[in-house]
């Protein structure tokens, strides 16, 4: 049983890819709309934040199986590593936005960081195709 857990792969790559694609679509779509509306800074910020959010989710899915280590201590240690690495990633994105506030609106980048959460919540409440019916449990 232990061997099964430590060899478990992450959740299906299909699901992760679907979420990321949807999230990037939202981010890019929103950015395009903002560009057309004349808010180029906001558009770039949203796109940057959305990219960081998707990257965060991707890294979380990679680091996930390690955090499930049946040895409690190592699993917890890995969760901490996961959080530190991912927050560092998002911090870089925010730092880029904040160091050139004229070209990339920081608040837009901050909003963009929540693209994946928005994708997950909106999917659940508008149809649920992404997060799967029971037949798509793998």
């Amino acid at each position: 049983m232990n061997a099964t857990v430590s060899k478990t792969e992450g959740p299906s790559n299909l699901f992760v890819r679907q979420v990321i694609t949807r999230a990037l679509l939202f981010a890019v779509g929103g950015a395009l709309i903002l560009t057309v509306a004349g808010q180029a800074g906001w558009a770039r910020g949203l796109a940057l934040g959305g990219l960081a959010s998707a990257a965060n989710f991707l890294v979380m899915s990679w680091l996930l199986p390690r955090a499930l280590d049946p040895a409690q201590r190592r699993g917890q240690a890995f969760t901490v590593v996961s959080v530190v690495v991912r927050f560092g990633l998002m911090a870089v994105a925010l730092a880029v936005a904040l160091s050139m506030p004229q070209r990339v609106t920081p608040l837009a980048a901050a909003a963009g960081l929540f693209t994946v959460q928005f994708t997950l919540l909106s999917d659940r409440f508008l149809g649920g195709r992404l997060l799967g019916t029971t037949s798509e449990s793998r």
């Binding site: 959740p11 299906s12 979380m60 997060l131 799967g132």
Partner: peptide, 15 residues
Amino acid sequence: MGGAILKNMLIGQAV
């Protein structure tokens, strides 16, 4: 159900 559980955990952790 490993796959479904991990998928669910990923979603939960993201939120």
